[in-house]
Amino acid sequence: MLIGYLILLGLILFDQLIKLISVLTKVSGTSLIKVLIPNILEFHYLENTGASFGMLEGQQAFFSLITIVALIIFGYFFLDINLKEKKVFSIAIILFIAGTFGNAIDRIFRDGAVVDMLNMPILNNLISLVGLSPFIFNVADIYLNFAVVLFIIDILFLERKRVGKHEKN
């Protein structure tokens, strides 16, 4: 359990460090655009008061409620993490908490906004084909997306194996 807390703390600190670097490198009120890997990865500074794709912009009370509920649920699951026997589940829960907490810190200290800074033009080109808007995201968002994928993998494939293994014993 201690290692889970340390990983969680490290992930939150990394997210906040990247956001701090983003804030410090922006040019007074404008977005600094820096191409890191052409057509693949760019740095853009953006303060987002909405959710993914700018949805629900300015709905801070709603975001606060969802964040509190999510952290309670993820905290409950965190009590069940076991990095030896349930690696994927445990990592998913740690990522859920780190991503949720990382963005919550921003909303608390940035007047309801979350600092976003990563842009993937190639991904934006692909999603525009299905009618979605381009988006800029942050490290906490990456944690949350990986958490969803890992959690689904655990539910669909690994949980059954664990249950079957315990039934045999």
Rank of each mutant, 00 (worst) to 15 (best):
64 S>K: 10
160 R>W: 11
69 V>Q: 01
21 I>H: 04
168 K>A: 08
85 E>D: 06
85 E>V: 07
72 I>K: 14
25 T>L: 13
81 I>C: 08
123 L>M: 01
69 V>P: 03
144 L>H: 00
46 L>S: 04
115 V>P: 05
30 T>V: 09
151 F>M: 15
126 L>D: 10
104 A>M: 15
4 G>R: 03
102 G>S: 08
16 Q>V: 12
157 F>S: 08
131 G>P: 07
53 F>C: 05
61 A>D: 11
156 L>M: 01
73 I>D: 05
52 S>R: 06
95 L>F: 14
68 I>K: 12
151 F>L: 15
55 M>H: 03
141 D>C: 04
33 I>K: 12
42 E>K: 15
125 N>K: 09
168 K>L: 05
92 A>V: 04
126 L>I: 15
1 M>A: 10
7 I>F: 13
168 K>F: 01
140 A>M: 11
4 G>D: 12
26 K>R: 10
12 I>V: 15
162 R>V: 09
139 V>K: 06
78 F>Y: 14
49 T>M: 01
82 N>C: 02
155 I>P: 05
98 A>C: 05
50 G>L: 09
71 L>S: 04
152 I>M: 01
75 G>R: 13
69 V>S: 02
136 I>W: 07
45 Y>R: 10
89 F>T: 04
58 G>K: 14
134 P>T: 03
2 L>N: 09
166 H>F: 13
82 N>E: 12
47 E>W: 04
84 K>F: 13
84 K>H: 13
147 A>K: 01
164 G>R: 07
6 L>Q: 08
59 Q>A: 10
68 I>G: 14
70 A>P: 06
115 V>A: 06
75 G>N: 08
156 L>D: 14
120 M>K: 02
131 G>V: 02
37 I>P: 07
44 H>E: 10
15 D>E: 07
160 R>I: 12
35 V>H: 14
147 A>V: 01
10 G>M: 01
24 L>E: 11
28 S>N: 12
74 F>T: 06
161 K>Q: 15
109 F>C: 12
23 V>G: 03
114 V>L: 05
113 A>L: 04
74 F>V: 08
43 F>T: 02
83 L>I: 01
6 L>P: 04
67 T>Y: 12
97 I>F: 09
16 Q>A: 10
6 L>M: 07
159 E>C: 04
61 A>N: 11
81 I>N: 03
45 Y>I: 00
160 R>E: 14
85 E>T: 02
34 K>D: 00
52 S>N: 05
23 V>W: 00
65 L>I: 13
37 I>N: 11
60 Q>C: 10
97 I>E: 06
3 I>L: 14
39 N>H: 09
129 L>T: 14
89 F>E: 02
114 V>Q: 00
53 F>N: 02
157 F>R: 11
16 Q>G: 13
109 F>D: 00
66 I>K: 01
117 M>F: 04
61 A>H: 09
162 R>Y: 14
91 I>P: 03
103 N>P: 11
40 I>S: 00
43 F>L: 15
164 G>F: 02
37 I>K: 10
150 L>Q: 05
140 A>C: 11
128 S>N: 12
134 P>I: 09
55 M>R: 07
145 N>G: 05
35 V>I: 07
167 E>M: 10
12 I>N: 02
124 N>F: 15
10 G>T: 05
152 I>E: 06
112 G>R: 01
